[in-house]
Write a protein that binds this DNA or RNA. Structure first.
Lengths: 165, 165
DNA sequence: TATTGTTATACTCTATAACTATA
DNA sequence: TATAGTTATAGAGTATAACAATA
C-alpha cells in the first residue's frame, strides 16, 4: 500500500517535476484561457475550430473542405456544418471548383480577413500583456519550448484524427 | 493595403516568433493529443473535466461540489451531472455533509484511485515517450516554461469561469 | 433570506450513416 | 466504381432558469 501511494504521489497539481504531469496540468489551463478569451472579447460565437479554419484559409486560399477538415481535425460532415456557419456569417466564400465540380473552394472574404486581423491583434495584446510579466529570457525560453513541443505533437497528431481544440 | 498585409502576416502557422501566436498554435495542438489519448487508450468514456475532477479529489478529499466546480471551471449544474456519471461509475463517492446538510462531500473510491493511478502511468508513459526525443536540457527548458506559464494563467483563470479543457 | 446543490430545458458541437453529385 | 461533399439523425457536454433543501 505504501508502494501504491508512492506510485501515484506525483499526481500533485501544485508541485511537479515530471514534464508529462506538468503538461496534463498546464495545457488545459492555458486552453481554458484561450477559449474563454475567444468566446468573450474576441470573436463571440466563433468556435476554436472555426477560428483555426480562418487562419488556415488565410494561408491556403482556395483550400478544399477536406483540406480544412484535415487541418482542424474534424470529420467531413462536422467541417461542412462548421464552414456553413462561417459562410452564413460572410467570413468565408464557398465556390464549386470549375475543374472538378466535386470539390469546394474556400477562401476568406474581405470581412473575414479584417475580422481575423482584428482578432489577432486582440489575442496578441491580451496574451502579450500576460507574458509581459516574464523576463525576456523567460519568454525566449517559452518560445523555444513551444517550438519544440509543436514539432513533437505535430507529428503525433498526424497519426490520428484529432478534435484539435 | 500593404500595411494591412504586414499587420496580419504573422498569422503564419508555420513560422512564428511571437509568443502569443505561438501559444494559439501549439496549445490547441497538444490539447488535441491529450484529448484523443484520454478518449482512446486511457480512460474511455471519461471527459477531461472528469479526469481533472478525479485528480482534484485525489488531492482534496471530501471536497464540495462547488469546490470541484470552481477547479474544473464548469457551472454547478454541469458539474453536478458530470459527478453523477463518476458516482454511477463507482469512481467517486458522494455523501451529504453531516455538519451542514447542504454540502456534498466527494471523494475517490478505491476503484477511482486505482483507475487514476493506471491512467497516470499510461499518460506519463505516452508523453514521456514523446518527450524522450528531446535532450535533457530541452526538457528542463520545457518544465521551466510550463511552470512559468502555469503561474501566469492560474491567476488569469481565477478571474473568470472557465471551461478549462 | 442566503447558500448549496439538483432538475428541467435548450443549445452547440461532434460523430456515424445514408445520400447526392461528379468523375 | 470511387471521391467530395451534404443531409439526417443521434449523443455528449454545457449553460441558464427554476426549484428544493438546509442554514
Amino acid at each position: 500500500m505504501k508502494q501504491f501511494q508512492n506510485e501515484i504521489n506525483s499526481l500533485s497539481t501544485s508541485v511537479q517535476a515530471e514534464p508529462a504531469a506538468l503538461i496534463m496540468d498546464v495545457i488545459p489551463l492555458i486552453m481554458s484561457y484561450i477559449r474563454s478569451e475567444m468566446r468573450s472579447r474576441r470573436m463571440p460565437g466563433l468556435s476554436i475550430p472555426q477560428f483555426r479554419s480562418l487562419i488556415y484559409l488565410y494561408r491556403h486560399e482556395d483550400a478544399s473542405l477536406s483540406q480544412v477538415s484535415e487541418h482542424v481535425g474534424l470529420k467531413l460532415p462536422s467541417t461542412s456544418k462548421m464552414i456553413d456557419a462561417l459562410v452564413e456569417r460572410k467570413l468565408v466564400i464557398r465556390k464549386t471548383s470549375a475543374t472538378d465540380r466535386r470539390f469546394v473552394k474556400l477562401k476568406l472574404s474581405a470581412t473575414g480577413e479584417a475580422e481575423l486581423a482584428k482578432a489577432r491583434r486582440s489575442t496578441e495584446t491580451q496574451l502579450a500583456e500576460i507574458l509581459s510579466a516574464l523576463t525576456p529570457e523567460q519568454q525566449d525560453n517559452i518560445i523555444a519550448s513551444l517550438e519544440e513541443l509543436r514539432s513533437l505533437f505535430a507529428v503525433k497528431s498526424n497519426r490520428q484524427a484529432n478534435t484539435e481544440i
